[in-house]
Design a protein around this nucleic acid. Sequence first.
DNA 1: ATTCAAGATTGCATAGTCTGCATTTTTGCG
DNA 2: CGCAAAAATGCAGACTATGCAATCTTGAAT
Lengths: 202, 202
Amino acid sequence: MRLAAANGVEHVTVDAISEAAGVSARTFFNYFDSRDEVFVMVGAESSARVRRAVLDAPGDQTPLEALRDAMAVELQEIEQQQELWRLHAEVLRRSPELLARSLGAHMSDEVGLAEAVAERIGAGSPLFSSDRASHSSAETETGAETEERRRALGLYPRLVAAVGVTAVRVAVEHWCVRQDEIAFTDVFRETFEHLAAGLPTP
Amino acid sequence: MRLAAANGVEHVTVDAISEAAGVSARTFFNYFDSRDEVFVMVGAESSARVRRAVLDAPGDQTPLEALRDAMAVELQEIEQQQELWRLHAEVLRRSPELLARSLGAHMSDEVGLAEAVAERIGAGSPLFSSDRASHSSAETETGAETEERRRALGLYPRLVAAVGVTAVRVAVEHWCVRQDEIAFTDVFRETFEHLAAGLPTP
DNA sequence: ATTCAAGATTGCATAGTCTGCATTTTTGCG
DNA sequence: CGCAAAAATGCAGACTATGCAATCTTGAAT
């Protein structure tokens, strides 16, 4: 992350990363499936925590509310680790594609999230929800397995998860561009207010 | 697309594509920035058509409704070109990552869409909305330019665009996995009903 | 018909990503 | 201390991607 912040993401080679980390380039690929992953994997545990929080949320909340609060907590924790995340944000700000992947791919794991939502409203597949909920998002998965998990899911849980993740992404992107003018908390709240209202003309 | 449907996307090399197309590999890269792009670029004009439709929609529709209808039309047109799109769908079904990119990156061009929404509700930046609305999504753009466009946009238009695109993606993914059981039209309608209702517990 | 310039295509060289395989090093434990 | 599992490494090879210079096409002006 330090290298990327200094030289720009696209100029950081695997060799450079490996050398800076004191390992061989080959070893890098034992831990990351691709070069980009190393810029995106930050905070991979968030996914699991959010899932758990969704399951443990008060029973009177709607799934969207539960998801909103779970993600809010996660984002707050992120603000603490200033060091790493300042660099991370700096790097991603210059690379929109990576930003999308970072938020989309990890804080999310949409399918896993959808399973949590499904279990919460009792519409999920008991086959998957419990054991799968704890699996790390670092594990790679074949397209076939993902498809199998998707098949068991209803449209609604899938939609809540996907839209929730999207909302967070939009909130973060919107705030990133105007850090000085507004507080993230406000952007975040407003975003989910729009959503819960069904996105009527404002 | 034919090669990918037959052998699986990841086994189709640039050399193979180029040879099948009767050009050199070098020429391939004169037209596509990356190997993946060739699997994603299908229907790149959709983006512009959707934007236009959003602008031209009846005044009594909410932005979300306008977007919903615009996308519905687009998806219907897609169903016509059975040949190409059957292959395309087949290819993308085996590669979730490409599916996301295909829908996310092109039918969308979220920022462009957000500009259309912004102009529609009169909250956009007059600097960009008119001339930018016609620019092809095939053109690549620097991170700086994208950031500049984002800065001029409000949170709400950005959110409607992103959520709309996400909704379509979820609808398509959900339907792809159960093509035999349900009609796409129904999935699509239900998806946007959930959205417009604010995603309450069903 | 000839010529010429712009554009398209190509080959070649080079940098970088990623994988498989065999080998060496490290680690943990009996 | 010694051994077996796990981690790390080196190396070869396939593939993606870019810059540059040379060649080929095309179409318009003469």
